[in-house]
């Protein structure tokens, strides 16, 4: 007997809804790429100036927004000054800006002194490369319209290579683009957080040391939250994720059982 698709959908919803409502949570064991990511940020000195590029759409906020939140919390906690920008993705502007602002308020950090948000810029790859030549020909103002030249901290910045680290949170190919046009060409160290779908693509770059650390999908975000000792969205989501994975695993087994049963009957 075949399971109807409606039944599968119903079960899927059930295994996701119940853990979320009851707030079940599991211990998550961090893996090496995430630990490396975490340590890379811990190794930065207080007051370090780094770039965070937000390269995702609201459609993948499930995986990447928890990363952005955890990362922002981590950076603020360590007194590192991030410059956020979304040069490759226009649609994320308000989502990123307000999520950061919310955490900044909680941690009493001020916009345009403890962190900067520069927003979108057209030009795609050209904009990335241009930042390597002259940062200000790409960004002159913050998202809220303040001139960058008025801030003391930007006096030491000429090119993107003057920043200590570049972190990309991406749902597409942007990490590879940044590796190609900024890491390789201008030598800025890079770490990245990507969706689960993209994660396995970046292991060769982790292996070669071009990426210093990698957060992969909701699990990566949950591991990062564990390392930061915070219990936020990703860790909550991981409980639902666990039950959903078990359901999929069982479905695969049932599907194969039926297939072999059908084949045996067919042969007979």
């Amino acid at each position: 007997m075949k399971i109807k698709k409606e039944v599968i959908y119903f079960l899927l919803l059930l295994v996701i809804i119940l853990p979320l409502i009851f707030g079940i949570s599991f211990k998550i064991k961090p893996t090496e790429p995430v630990i490396n990511f975490f340590q890379e940020i811990n190794s930065l000195k207080k007051g370090s100036f780094i770039v965070v590029t937000i390269s995702f759409d609201p459609s993948t906020k499930a995986e990447l927004l928890p990363m952005l939140d955890a990362l922002t919390y981590h950076l603020f906690k360590n007194d590192i000054i991030p410059v956020y920008m979304n040069p490759l993705n226009a649609n994320v502007t308000n989502l990123g800006y307000l999520s950061i602002k919310k955490i900044a308020r909680k941690m009493k950090k001020k916009e345009n002194s403890d962190y900067y948000y520069l927003g979108f810029v057209p030009g795609d790859k050209s904009a990335l490369q241009d930042m390597g030549e002259d940062f200000y020909s790409v960004y002159k103002k913050t998202f809220d319209g303040k001139d960058l030249e008025n801030f003391n901290i930007f006096k030491n910045i000429q090119k993107i290579s003057d920043f200590s680290l570049l972190i990309d949170l991406a749902d597409g190919n942007s990490t590879l683009d940044l590796l190609t046009y900024i890491n390789t060409k201008y030598g800025v160290p890079m770490a990245s957080g990507v969706t689960a779908v993209m994660a396995s693509e970046y292991y060769p770059y982790l292996n070669s040391g071009q990426l210093l650390g990698l957060l992969g999908g909701l699990r990566g975000a949950a591991e990062y939250e564990t390392l930061l000792d915070m219990s936020a969205k990703a860790r909550r989501g991981m409980s639902a994720q666990t039950f959903a994975h078990i359901l999929i695993f069982i479905l695969i087994i049932i599907g194969n059982y039926e297939y072999f049963k059908g084949k045996r009957h067919g042969n007979n």
């Binding site: 399971i3 698709k5 599968i8 959908y9 899927l12 959903a244 359901l247 999929i248 479905l251 695969i252 049932i254 599907g255 194969n256 297939y259 072999f260």
Partner: peptide, 14 residues
């Protein structure tokens, strides 16, 4: 998510 769960049952076979 719905499609992939249904695909896991239908198409993911040895």
């Amino acid at each position: 998510a719905f499609y992939i769960s249904s695909a896991a049952y239908r198409a993911f076979r040895a």
